[in-house]
Design a protein around this nucleic acid. Sequence first.
DNA 1: AATTTAAGCGTACACGTGTACGCTGTTGTG
DNA 2: CACAACAGCGTACACGTGTACGCTTAAATT
Lengths: 210, 210
Amino acid sequence: MSGVRAQQKEKTRRQIINAALKQLSAERSFSSLSLREVAKEAGLAPTSFYRHFSDMDELGLTLVDEAGLTLRQLMRQARQRIAKGGSVIQISVETFMELIESNGNVFRLLLRERSGTSAAFRAAVIREIRYFTMELCDYLQKANNLDADVAYIHAHAAVTIVFGAGSDALDIDDKEEREQLAQQTIQQLRFIARGALEFSDRRKVSKKFR
Amino acid sequence: MSGVRAQQKEKTRRQIINAALKQLSAERSFSSLSLREVAKEAGLAPTSFYRHFSDMDELGLTLVDEAGLTLRQLMRQARQRIAKGGSVIQISVETFMELIESNGNVFRLLLRERSGTSAAFRAAVIREIRYFTMELCDYLQKANNLDADVAYIHAHAAVTIVFGAGSDALDIDDKEEREQLAQQTIQQLRFIARGALEFSDRRKVSKKFR
DNA sequence: AATTTAAGCGTACACGTGTACGCTGTTGTG
DNA sequence: CACAACAGCGTACACGTGTACGCTTAAATT
């Protein structure tokens, strides 16, 4: 049970995954990939693909999971930076923009499959984004002392804005424009934070006088 | 030049467009449509398709244009309702949600092609959304007396939130849940409006004392 | 009335697709 | 050591695809 066999299997499994990721681009979506293409890129005979995934769908779901993992790693990274001091919003946006730049195709996968044709894919992406939102929600609730529901609405809005900005960023090559987009996004997040805080405070006052 | 000929041509052109729209659904994206399928649905021989569009791409761009038109009609409709009184935000969200319910597939087309694999499609969708944003920007600037750039950032954020909510709404069947989403969206737009107003005011004060 | 234009059809072709099937060689197990 | 398990390969098949080509038929033009 040393696993020389299982080890090999895991290795070519990763080759398949990497082959798929490699073929993703602005011009190539996952759904446009064929089993044969992926197998070829992985250096496999088409039929050998089935030894690892029963379907392209199964591979796709695996990719979405990986993408979600990348997203969570990003968040941890952002939290570390924030702990060292600095504006929470600014650091978060910067970190996110770096993800777009370094892992654009992974982010593209999430964006595309969120509105894709497979219900399973959509559900998987939505789940990943929900994790993302919930963690932010917790943070906001503790940091800003917000009502639970205000915090959730705030978090949801912030995530929507950031993902929207990410989507825009994918179509921008110019570095200056990207920076401008980042600044705009930061400002939008500040609007939301400000608005949420005010609504939350107002509600507390009305509670006080109840 | 009476146009019996041109009239017929226009008619079957519409048949093609309608055939394509009819095949769009949650499970079927435009890019997954084949020329042959569309032609069949339109009651045409595959090769006759070429008499009207050189490409599936050309048909796709036409559809995006149509979708943009639908969007603009929606805005006019919303403005009419607003003129009759009521909360601007609430009426806008309600109107938008009605679009999702009645024209879900058209909206899906826009959402999908915005992050699709064709640069031309992406550009077309982004252009339509820009129109949408700009009109809102004008409105906000006049109605709330905002700075030009604050108004733009506000408008952009609002559109992002509304489109994001539309995207979420597409995956919700339950009417109650949909209503809840609408309320949440309204609240998010209020956060943004409140935040923008405050930032704008603050800036005016600093101008005053300059 | 004669001629040109053009929408629509049917046939035909080459190509890429998913996958069923049986085989080979290596690893793990009794 | 014998045997089972199994990753990987090659062949083969049916199917759907885009589109080139030539034809028909009805409208438009001359």
